[in-house]
Design a protein around this nucleic acid. Sequence first.
DNA 1: TTGTACGCGTTATCAG
DNA 2: CTGATAACGCGTACAA
Lengths: 331, 331
Amino acid sequence: MATIGAVAKQAGVSIASVSRVINGTAARADTERRVRAAIQDLGYQPNSAARALKVRQSEQICLSFDDLSNPAYVLMTRGVGQALSSSKYRLILSSAFSSVEEIVKHLETMGRGFADGLIISPIYADARITTLISQLKMPVVLVGTMPEGLDVDNVYVNSAAGVDLAIDHLIEIGRKRIALINGPVTTNPGRRRKAAFEKALKKNKLAFSDASIIQADAFSTQAGFEAVTNIKELKKFDAIICANDQLAAGVMKFCVDNEIDIPSDIALIGIDNIELASLLRPTLTSVDLRAEERGQIAANLMLNRLANPDRPSKQIEVQPRLVIRQSTVAS
Amino acid sequence: MATIGAVAKQAGVSIASVSRVINGTAARADTERRVRAAIQDLGYQPNSAARALKVRQSEQICLSFDDLSNPAYVLMTRGVGQALSSSKYRLILSSAFSSVEEIVKHLETMGRGFADGLIISPIYADARITTLISQLKMPVVLVGTMPEGLDVDNVYVNSAAGVDLAIDHLIEIGRKRIALINGPVTTNPGRRRKAAFEKALKKNKLAFSDASIIQADAFSTQAGFEAVTNIKELKKFDAIICANDQLAAGVMKFCVDNEIDIPSDIALIGIDNIELASLLRPTLTSVDLRAEERGQIAANLMLNRLANPDRPSKQIEVQPRLVIRQSTVAS
DNA sequence: TTGTACGCGTTATCAG
DNA sequence: CTGATAACGCGTACAA
């Protein structure tokens, strides 16, 4: 591999001059020409490790979340990747954490300096994670609900407003007996959806009991199917909100199998509005949480922070939007 | 940030000793204890840039493909990520290339040494890409059809066998007038599917004309919908194979809208067997191309190559498998 | 077993 | 505007 020294020799100038040409500092036209020719000649590429060691920047940004099998995170990754692609930064992906310990271990390796910034969307609420993040010596952008006592750049979606949108819509179409099929309450989204759901029902003076919330084991299709299977009296409800679209897909599968008509017997609403929602039959009404957009915003917050390390932290709220389809309003 | 020097001072030993302890070379028990204590004390983490500069390894592997919005690539990414998570290597993601030029540019940056290996799944067949790959000074694993004149580790799926599986199945259920809705023939998968389809029809002495192959603009749901819309005489066919599941989803949407019954009027088969296939109604028969498994294999090939740079290159063929669902056999 | 000293490829400072 | 040279943090001959 050609080094900067080889280029210098070939061009008949000093190493310093080559460096200047590369980094755009002034140089005589003739010098620049010869250096560029030599670079071309040797196919020189600056070594990123040496550069990183010297300037203390890796030009890499790390994106961390728990599970790439969730399409909402894929959307987020796309958003981040897109925003980063027009910058000098590369994207490092850290995914598939199966436990808090793994996240902790990963967070500790951040001290090695292989990334200039961390965009993280932790699904579990754990004090260790919060502490570790706050001790990180690098810029952090948090995607999701900000834990108590943390002050970093943050983009989050007003998910309570999303639940409100869903419930208002259900009320409009005359539904009053509404259930929530929730994901695990050990997760942040699970907890928040539950709280928002309770609050919204009470606000609208709708029937609410413990039976109104069914806990699924995961945010997956399979879990949705199992959760709805376990409901003793499905007839008690005339509408179901699911904590994400995959859960809703599982519910829909169950309904088709058991000849329960959607939406006439039961109206169904999902959350996330992934592509799947428009492909199911009936198509699925869903609350769009704008994951791709949040990813873009997160990446731009990071780029902005990197360019401007001292600005105060920013919190950006993204508004959900309801996409009405056949699962609530027959076409 | 604590450096190795700080640790050495704190432990009262030389930096060489600290380095030895970290890298597992022999040291007196007492020395090791003091070094470890100092490391703990200072929260020392070795600087990865300095390490990379010295040992000429970045401990990073780059995964490149064209579009993260294709769930098949997400599966592949999961496979790679999973195989890498138990290694010391980090995963760098490069996606969303919109043109050959972008890929070329990306390939050129590989010379900077920020990655120890490249796993690449190029969708476009372009001589420049092949040339560039062959000139790369680092291990490369190619996922997909190997272009002429390249000799690198490779994992590919026998997609012709996949098309055969689909056609054999259709023949078994009595279909004879089969169409292919293909993706762009500017892509490798598009070209291969087309060739395999023609060959399989002829082998089975089934009717084939230019009208049997309908070109979609992309591998997307929308493109599938549009492609089927453009077929003049849909009744001519009693079965459709789609180049991927998303195209098939678009076709299914069209059929539902136009009251064409699947499978009685038209049998439908997709390719990839992404989760979507089991969620559509009717559920979609699909040829599983084992993307996640290919990702795992690719990553393992890479790890193995990195550990053993001089072994001859390996080509691994993955066999597709047909997953029969309601779109060909009503339940 | 331990310590000293050098070099990895860059950037940045400072004299010319 | 240019060139020599000192870091950056780490690994490792080589000497002790």
